[in-house]
Write a protein that binds this DNA or RNA. Structure first.
Lengths: 149, 149
DNA sequence: CAATTTTAGTTGACTTTTGCAACTAATTTC
DNA sequence: GAAATTAGTTGCAAAAGTCAACTAAAATTG
């Protein structure tokens, strides 16, 4: 119905609440990490020989922003920027041990929060939910492959 | 499983893609409106005698930010700031005709985009989806009432 | 009811996030 | 080999968000 809250409104609102909860939990655990940083660490960990341009493309953000956010992660010693062996223009981003540990810690907290947020949701409902999320991603027509659902 | 993408990661990514698509569609239609502005107009339209403090509480944002974003909406002549009749500290925010028209236009585009994004999603799946969203919102323990699901 | 506390709004200063354009160096294309 | 493209970098500026201080009005309370 047209009078309902738009899907995107609802989704955005929910995401925002969830994000606030996660960041609060990070802080409670003495973890100083922004959502963006968490996401970036996750992505760097996932991809072998990831370049900054790859990351910019993936998140649909300007490469200059990725550059600067990467700089912060490097200052924190979570990430190292290495010259690509084949293409001297490219820089490969890799996690340091410290970065990996932080990521694992953050993922633990994240899983815990997710679990709490999904309290009372039946497994089959969750399946439907993930299915819909996956279809929405496909329908944006911008994603590579939803290889992860 | 621990190796899966965290729920919040997936949700955030999806939301971001959807948001980009919506904003692109806004632009295609000559509508210069940010996501935040869209959401604010929507909320102002929904609530009678809404104060800035109410809005700040609702969105968990600082009142100074709400103040400034409201100023922009007022400059655009989408919103008017009126003195509350009973409490002289409060200002009620109301949509102008122009603001209402813009909101309706934006909502139309939003519904259209939502429809496209939900292409291939069965009605019952959508129900499950909205149900899960609603439960997540409840579980954040911060929302007033999910009166709208 | 006068004094204190709280609330809503406002402003200033500051940081973070983001976007756009220009530039460099390396690689590809033609 | 020249021209076009690509990855990374930097400068500049706008937008978003935080924190603290201040004003005026209301609510509290002793």
């Amino acid at each position: 119905m047209e009078t309902n809250k738009p899907l995107l409104y609802l989704l955005g609102q929910t995401m925002n609440l969830a994000k606030l909860k996660l960041l609060a939990r990070f802080k409670e655990n003495g973890l100083e990490l922004s959502m963006e940083q968490f996401i970036m660490l996750h992505f760097i960990n996932e991809k072998e020989d990831l370049t900054q341009q790859d990351m910019a493309d993936h998140f649909f953000k300007d490469k200059s922003l990725i550059m600067r956010q990467t700089n912060v992660l490097i200052e924190l010693r979570y990430v190292a920027r290495m010259q690509d062996k084949e293409d001297k223009r490219k820089k490969n981003l890799i996690l340091t041990k410290k970065g990996y540990d932080v990521l694992e810690f953050a993922k633990n907290i994240s899983n815990q929060v997710s679990h709490e947020l999904l309290n009372g949701v039946a497994p089959e409902e969750l399946l439907h939910f993930e299915n819909v999320i996956s279809k929405i991603q496909e329908n944006t027509g911008q994603k590579d492959h939803p290889s992860n659902c």
